[in-house]
Simulated assay, not measured.
Amino acid sequence: MIQFSSHSGIYTLQTKLVIPISIDEAWEFFSSPKNLAKITPEHMGFKITSKITESMFPGQIISYRIGLLPGIKSNWVTEITHVSKPNFFVDEQRFGPYAMWHHEHHFEEHENGVLMTDRVSYKLPLGALGRLFHPLLIKPQLKKIFEYRTQVLIKKFKST
């Protein structure tokens, strides 16, 4: 389930998915930057460009290169700003294509495994032009990315 909302020029995307694994398994998978490429559509050419560590920590900087549109690649730098193992972590864009990007990853025990909630708050650059592009380009692209992610996770964890 993907929901979009907006308020004062800030958009919010929220997804929820129950996956049949333990909260510790969920944390191990999602808190590792190495797994980002596995849940990002291949056509985006996601590649981490910074050195990464095994364990996530507040203040950790992760840089990567990603294709936003066909033929348009962007460098993106995020900082892990909050970590509360195994319940949530937050990454925020420090440099990249958005005027603001704040991504919360929440994990809760659920009778069928783990309820994973992603909440992304973002603001587009270019003012009115950015807002014009949101329904035409940005929202559909983000929807496809998170739908892809959901399908990959369902497939990966279906037999766990």
Rank of each mutant, 00 (worst) to 15 (best):
M1G: 12
S5T: 13
S5L: 02
S6I: 00
S8A: 09
S8F: 05
G9Y: 01
G9F: 04
G9K: 00
G9P: 00
I10P: 08
L17P: 11
V18E: 12
V18R: 08
I19H: 09
E28C: 05
F29P: 02
F29W: 13
F30S: 03
F30K: 01
S31N: 08
S32N: 13
P33R: 08
K34S: 11
L36A: 12
L36F: 12
A37W: 13
I39C: 06
I39R: 05
P41Q: 11
P41V: 12
E42N: 11
G45V: 10
F46N: 03
K47L: 10
I48D: 12
T49Q: 14
T49N: 08
T53V: 10
T53R: 07
T53Q: 12
E54P: 14
M56V: 13
P58N: 03
P58E: 04
P58I: 02
G59K: 10
Q60M: 14
Q60E: 15
I62C: 12
I62D: 14
S63F: 11
S63E: 15
L68D: 04
L68V: 10
P70Y: 03
K73A: 01
K73Q: 07
K73P: 01
N75C: 05
N75A: 08
W76P: 09
T78A: 08
E79W: 04
E79M: 10
E79I: 07
T81C: 08
T81V: 14
H82E: 15
V83P: 07
V83H: 08
S84G: 08
S84P: 02
K85A: 07
K85D: 01
P86N: 06
P86D: 06
F88V: 01
F88Q: 06
F89I: 04
V90Q: 09
V90G: 07
D91W: 07
E92G: 05
E92F: 06
Q93R: 02
R94S: 04
Y98V: 00
Y98S: 00
A99D: 03
A99S: 15
A99W: 09
M100N: 04
M100Y: 01
M100S: 05
M100I: 00
W101R: 05
H102N: 04
H102R: 00
H102F: 09
E104I: 15
E104W: 08
H105Y: 13
F107P: 12
F107T: 11
E108T: 13
H110T: 07
E111G: 14
L115K: 13
D118C: 05
V120A: 03
Y122S: 11
Y122E: 03
K123P: 01
K123W: 04
K123N: 05
P125W: 10
L126P: 02
A128Y: 02
G130R: 06
G130I: 01
R131H: 15
F133A: 09
H134K: 00
H134G: 02
L136Y: 00
L137P: 03
L137D: 04
L137K: 00
K139I: 05
K139N: 03
P140Y: 11
Q141C: 01
L142S: 00
K143L: 07
K144M: 13
E147V: 09
Y148M: 10
Q151V: 01
V152S: 05
I154S: 12
K155M: 06
K156M: 12
F157C: 09
F157Y: 14
S159L: 11
S159W: 06
T160E: 09
